[in-house]
Design a protein around this nucleic acid. Structure first.
Lengths: 222, 222
DNA sequence: AACCGATTTATACAAGTGTTTCATATCGAT
DNA sequence: ATCGATATGAAACACTTGTATAAATCGGTT
């Protein structure tokens, strides 16, 4: 009974973050008004500016949290099958990754939604996100795939296979996927999908590995 | 000499559609103002409302055009390898699909950008898009995959493989992909990627086909 | 009780938005 | 040349948006 015992009894700041995360994930940064957020959080219109300086400050804070979450996800996903065979490690990696991305954190403001949105509708914070969350993950996944293929991690075929695996996972993080796959975000369904992606990708990786490198990456700019 | 010979000499209506398509694809519906569009089209602020009733009318018209384009793309992509083996048909399908989605129509307002955006940031017109552009395409692709797997098209494993193929293609239609793959939207690079996806997917399909149906689709709602 | 910093409130502001209005211009047909 | 339909133009409206302000309220300390 510190403040108004109206909503749940927690710091206004926390309620703002929670409400905003859900709304941003649901509708995107520009389709959510400060009044929406404050309304849902049971706070005054000025609360956002008081605690976060401006609407962008709030968004950045949320995105920062998601970056941390995503980094942790990558670590957990990679460490999941430690000691096992590369094939099993890939399977574990996919499963843990999808579990945390699709169902994580109370199913409402699931991080995947916001991530997927940030990728199609890049905000100025996208660079940060790519550098801190996506790239390190790609590197470790690349090492694993390279091991599976028996090729150096720099081989363009490795990069291409990493892309194939990642797009299959990221593709599940958007509203259309959620609509086409009924029970998405329930653990059982996610496990099934992870199993499919693992088997499918292992087959694909094997197929790519045992053929000439027809595709030489052109104008390697980076 | 008809109207103002200022910009290029074409109907204002057409210039509006062209400018708006580019801007919507670039920044999304809500991040483009009517004044932006009219400014770029060299038209008055009232032009949008005069020709399209309101901003939404303009967007719907553009989306309608993209739906037609996408339907045509599906037909072309499926007919590309007619008479050839299923494997080759899949390869042709992927190549034609990507060519038209990523490089089509003057590289600026490439349809894929808007499609990808519509999928993450669903507008009320998304249902139309799913029903008219995505589903028929999935059905035909499903038939092809079923043939490849030697399974009935209703087998859940077929649907899962279709999803894997599609997510790999759709995944290329967003800004992050364009940033990670340097020369995307040039025909040569697209051909290389199409080849990779084809080989990878054929390997994946084969791997899934020759194992028990571990994943039974839960609560088949549709 | 009185004070003080931190928080919450109600209200207002300035800028930007989609849309409307109505006057003017343009062009083809009579 | 005149008329009528179509198209364009400048200005303004009504509304929403993010943000700022100043007063009011609260909780703890002296």
């Amino acid at each position: 009974m510190a403040t108004t015992p109206s909503v749940t009894d927690q710091e206004t700041r926390q309620r703002l973050i929670q409400a905003a995360a859900r709304l941003f994930a649901e509708r995107g940064f520009n389709n959510v008004t400060v009044r929406d957020i404050c309304g849902e959080a049971g706070a005054n219109v000025a609360a956002v500016n008081y605690y976060f300086r401006d609407k962008w400050g709030l968004y950045k804070e949320i995105l920062q949290g998601i970056i941390e979450y995503q980094k942790r996800t990558s670590e957990l996903a990679h460490d999941a099958g430690e000691g096992k065979s590369p094939e099993e490690r890939l399977h574990h990696y996919i499963r843990v990754f999808l579990q945390r991305a699709l169902a994580g954190e109370g199913r409402e403001s699931c991080p995947g939604k916001l991530v997927g949105r940030e990728m199609t509708d890049p905000s100025p914070a996208l660079d940060l996100f790519i550098d801190e969350a996506i790239r390190p993950n790609s590197v470790r996944l690349g090492a694993l795939v390279a091991e599976l293929m028996g090729l150096p991690a720099t081989d363009p075929r490795v990069g291409a296979c990493v892309g194939s695996v990642q797009t299959q996972m990221v593709g599940l993080m958007n509203p259309v996927a959620a609509r086409l796959v009924p029970g998405l975000n329930t653990p059982a369904v996610i496990d099934g999908i992870a199993h499919h992606i693992a088997v499918f990708s292992l087959g694909g990786i094997r197929a790519i590995a045992q053929q000439k490198p027809v595709w030489t990456k052109p104008e390697v700019k980076q």
